[in-house]
Nucleic acid binder design. Structure first.
Lengths: 157, 157
DNA sequence: CCTATATCAGATCGACTGACATCT
DNA sequence: CAGATGTCAGTCTATCTGATATAG
């Protein structure tokens, strides 16, 4: 039931632990995201963004980019397909694979979602524009070190 | 199986989305944490930090601070007790509650864990000391806005 | 009586494993 | 044949729900 009665403070010592603070923020985000339909959540946005930016790809390839398991990709793409945001065509050159492609509606929807996230940053609402920019820069730099797959331009300080 | 063969890059558009980048970082942290024994993970450190900083409390109260569900607190404290890090005494003034208290070993262990996290920041290894400090400051400020329970001193910019 | 605490059984979800059919 | 791809069934964990025993 996750008793959120009072507003008992967190210990100072934990506010020195970045993984803890990040986890609390991510969990708060999950609670907020629960109000959205399943097909409109981050995994769907992320998959569509991959297709938009790198063109038609197999489910496997998208999963490698995003670190999503191939078996989980099935369900994620199921929802995108159900909502008419991607087309699951077979790759004619290799009929094991799909050549996943965003539909026109999917492209439009992706643009709307990205705009909404950028213009109404719920999780980072406590920060001003410059602070959000700086935070993002630091997060991306940290991610690039932990997990090599961040493009060069975005690693620059 | 989470195919991490190549090093296919992430789309730029997603690197503009803070919740996505934070989630990737938290997931990377989870993979790293899996190598540690269950009793040595963040929830255990967090509970112990609450007891150290605010004195003996009920499981409920710790859960309210950390946003952990009371039913999950049971298992978290089970491990802490098994490892000899907290004592589950009953509160003599209200025998429904525990007065959870850290043991001497628990205090020592907490100090070691906090030191280790601060001195070897695995997730933020790509950042220098000043960058880590700034990132933490921004994360705490964002959390204070989303979830009011961050103490005053830590909200200051 | 009604409420709070700790606990447990179970639902749900995210992440992963192992197996399998299909195709190269 | 080996190896890749998509899929499914099932495990494991985290998070949350609902119920119960006990104490106030």
């Amino acid at each position: 039931m996750q008793t959120d009665g009072g507003d008992l403070p967190l210990p100072e010592s934990l506010l020195r632990v970045a993984p803890f603070v990040m986890l609390q923020l991510v969990r708060a985000g999950r609670r907020l995201a629960e109000r959205m339909p399943a097909g409109a959540r981050l995994p769907q946005v992320a998959v569509l963004a991959c297709l938009e930016e790198f063109g038609p790809q197999s489910q496997r390839e998208v999963g490698r980019r995003l670190r999503f398991d191939p078996s989980d990709m099935v369900r994620i793409v199921d929802l995108l397909e159900r909502d008419g945001h991607v087309a699951r065509r077979r790759d004619p050159d290799d009929r094991r694979r799909y050549a996943l492609a965003p539909t026109a509606a999917g492209r439009r929807w992706l643009g709307e979602r990205l705009d909404a996230i950028e213009s109404r940053p719920v999780l980072l609402a406590g920060l001003d524009e410059a602070e959000r920019e700086r935070l993002l820069q630091l997060l991306v730099k940290a991610l690039a070190h932990v997990d090599g797959r961040v493009p060069q331009e975005s690693r620059a300080v």
